[in-house]
């Protein structure tokens, strides 16, 4: 295989994975951008969707294409619970979210993440779950040019694009979406023009976590085995992507996800030339975190965010 082919394959795979990373980050950018809630339970919210879809398929034979809606629904419920149980008391009636409140919600979501993570471990006894050999259509691979791509990966990319488009339209066009954007820009002013901030904060949490749980289905199209530690793989990447894309920007996050995926693909090829195949994967992931730290330091508003 020539270098060019290898590069092409890796970049294509990276970009495809990037669409999933993008979708995984959309929920995070919403809740972080609108309410300054740094959702440290983001990985666990992803896992909820992954588990729901796999459990439904394994034990009840529910097709994942149906299961993903159940995942979405359970995510919405989780969001509702988290808002009223964990967030409302801290931010419900606060207009200006200062550093102290930001740190309180961060610690609170950290506690939620401990609880959820260990509930998953407890109930699954850390056994891997997954969707096994399930895929859409008759074959699991299709050939594009001289490379073959997993059908599941294409499904994931298509669904992520569709879902992100829908949520983007929702935020841009519907009255609720506009209210959410108003609160994101200035919650005090929003309250003055008659938007109920509590309702908006609750809806934001619900939508954010619901969408995130849905994206958990996209994740299992990539991960053959769902174990709790997947949270530690995707959540840090999501944080990177949200920072890179700019807080609160759905399109920014989605594009940043694809960029990170692409960079992952390219650096994988470069590192496998430099230090060998085994070391290339971890080093390619390192690139993402180096980008995170550099973005935080030199362009904290991200690629598509407003200056803070």
């Amino acid at each position: 295989m020539t270098l060019m082919t290898e590069l092409l394959i890796n970049v294509t795979n990276g970009l495809l994975w990037g669409t999933v990373l993008g979708a995984v980050s959309v929920g995070l950018t919403l809740i972080w951008g609108v309410m300054k809630v740094v959702n440290l339970a983001h990985g666990e919210s992803i896992l909820l969707g992954s588990y729901i879809v796999s459990v439904l398929l394994l034990f009840m034979g529910v097709d994942p294409m149906v299961g993903m809606f159940v995942a979405l629904g359970s995510g919405l419920l989780l969001g509702l619970t988290i808002y009223w149980l964990n967030l409302h008391k801290i931010i419900g009636h606060v207009d200006v979210i200062n550093l102290r409140i930001e740190m309180s919600t961060l610690l609170e979501m950290f506690a939620v993440s401990i609880i959820l993570y260990n509930l998953y471990s407890f109930f699954t006894r850390s056994e891997p779950f997954g969707i096994g050999i399930w895929h859409l259509g008759p074959t699991s691979y299709i050939n594009i040019g001289y490379m073959s791509v997993q059908v599941n990966h294409i499904t994931a990319a298509a669904l992520s694009l569709g879902a992100t488009f829908i949520i983007y339209q929702f935020i841009a066009k519907t009255p609720t979406g506009k209210a959410i954007r108003a609160v994101m820009q200035d919650s005090q002013a929003a309250a003055l023009v008659g938007i109920d901030p509590v309702k908006i904060k609750m809806l934001t949490t619900v939508i954010s976590i619901g969408f995130t749980a849905f994206s958990g289905f996209l994740v299992i199209l990539y991960e053959s085995a769902v174990v709790p530690s997947i949270a530690y793989k995707y959540a840090p990447l999501a944080f990177t992507i949200v920072v890179l894309g700019g807080l609160g920007s759905i399109m920014g996050s989605y594009i940043a996800g694809i960029i990170i995926g692409g960079i992952y693909g390219v650096s994988k090829v470069i590192f496998s030339l430099l230090v060998g195949k085994n070391a290339s994967d971890p080093l390619a992931l390192t690139t993402a975190f180096v980008i995170l730290v550099l973005t935080l330091l030199f362009k904290p508003e991200g690629l598509f965010g407003r200056k803070r």
């Binding site: 961060l106 840090p236 944080f239 330091l297």
Partner: peptide, 14 residues
Amino acid sequence: GAFFAIATIGLDFA
């Protein structure tokens, strides 16, 4: 605040 926390997570993973 949170940005410091996130950056240290990034460092740990890197």
